[in-house]
Simulated scan of single mutants.
Amino acid sequence: MTRLRATLYYGILWLISLCFFAPIGWIVLSSFKTQNEILAMPPKLLFSPTFDNYRALFANDGIFKQIANSVFLSLGAVIVAVVVSFLAAFCFSRFKPRGTDFLMFLLLSIRMLPGPAVILPVFLMYVAFGWKDSHLWLLLFYAMFSIPFSVWILKGFLDGVSTRYDETGLVNGGSWMHIIFKVVLPQVRPGLIAAFIFNLIFVWNEYLFNFIIGGVNTQNIPYALMVGTYSDGGLNWTFISAMTSIYMVLPIVFIFIFQKYLLVGMTFGTVRGEV
């Protein structure tokens, strides 16, 4: 009876997983089909794969620049955001400045604002200062937008690290830099990775600000998907399927590599001992 129950349990889990991953599998399979095969009814499950969609995609020189922009902006912005957020979260957790609770609420409320609510003043500021269509300033904007959520995640982890670690380090002559980066940081690694992945997904998928305050030099993959979706008066499904398949690679790779830490980070669950 126990074996039957386990079989049913895992069978249901596999069924649910397949339901969630079926659209992903379908778009990847479609990237190896012709336009007629993609639109065929009933759908064609058996077909001769073709790489023509990918050849046509990479025949456009601009696509390499857009992929490079997405990688640079996403990784650069998230790395900056995580470093700044870790230091800010350490300050909030250890030194508890006056109004910490209000400041934490204020940080989270900033992230609650929808993009269209702030796009006009941001656009006017970027135009006035000559920051439009700049990799650096767009990267810093994404970092700024990623910091509030990262601070919330990391403060929760840092609150769970006993202050005895800090006290022991100070008593033994360690500097604050040593305590922060050598003693405390390794214990909140799951939180750092969780913040990194969540913000990477946000920046990787961001389109509105790239379109408004970016430009020709900073176009990313979502921008490429938008401008290439329609062709010859209809949806260009071969382009969409091929581009989407490439688009999913980076997030899937990072999630697969760090899945163990990501699970802990999502649940804010860490096991720590006392000094």
Rank of each mutant, 00 (worst) to 15 (best):
L75A: 14
I119Y: 01
P222I: 09
A68E: 04
V249D: 06
V84D: 05
Q259G: 01
S134I: 09
A242E: 07
F102I: 15
L200H: 07
K260M: 02
G130I: 09
F86D: 03
N205Q: 13
A22D: 00
G269M: 14
T267K: 15
L106S: 09
V183G: 04
P42G: 04
A117C: 12
G174P: 01
F64T: 08
P114G: 03
M144H: 12
V183Q: 14
V183M: 13
W137G: 12
L136K: 04
S85W: 03
M1G: 05
K155Y: 04
L15V: 09
V171F: 05
A195K: 06
L136D: 00
F211E: 07
L29R: 06
S31W: 00
F105R: 02
I63W: 08
F32C: 12
Y10T: 11
G215W: 11
I257E: 01
G174W: 05
F149V: 14
R272Q: 15
L225V: 10
V151P: 03
V249L: 13
K132P: 15
A88S: 13
K260R: 10
I27V: 14
V188W: 14
E206S: 01
F239D: 11
A242I: 03
L263V: 15
F58G: 08
F254S: 03
L73N: 09
W131T: 00
N172L: 14
F105A: 11
F123D: 01
Y142G: 12
I246G: 05
N236I: 05
M112K: 04
P190A: 09
R189N: 02
G169C: 01
M248Q: 15
Q259E: 10
S241V: 02
K33I: 05
L120T: 07
S70R: 03
R164T: 04
Y261C: 01
L107K: 05
G25F: 13
V82A: 09
D101T: 14
F64A: 07
L208T: 08
V151L: 08
I27D: 02
V28C: 11
T100L: 07
S31E: 06
S175C: 01
A68H: 10
L225R: 08
N210K: 06
P190Q: 11
W26I: 07
M125L: 15
K96M: 15
I240M: 12
L103F: 12
P97C: 10
S231H: 11
F20M: 11
S70Y: 08
G269C: 09
T2V: 05
N60K: 13
A117R: 04
R272P: 00
P190F: 03
G265N: 02
L18S: 14
F157H: 12
D133C: 09
I180D: 00
F102Y: 13
I240H: 04
A89Y: 04
V78P: 05
I24K: 10
I193R: 13
I246Q: 03
K182Y: 08
F123I: 06
G115D: 07
T229Q: 06
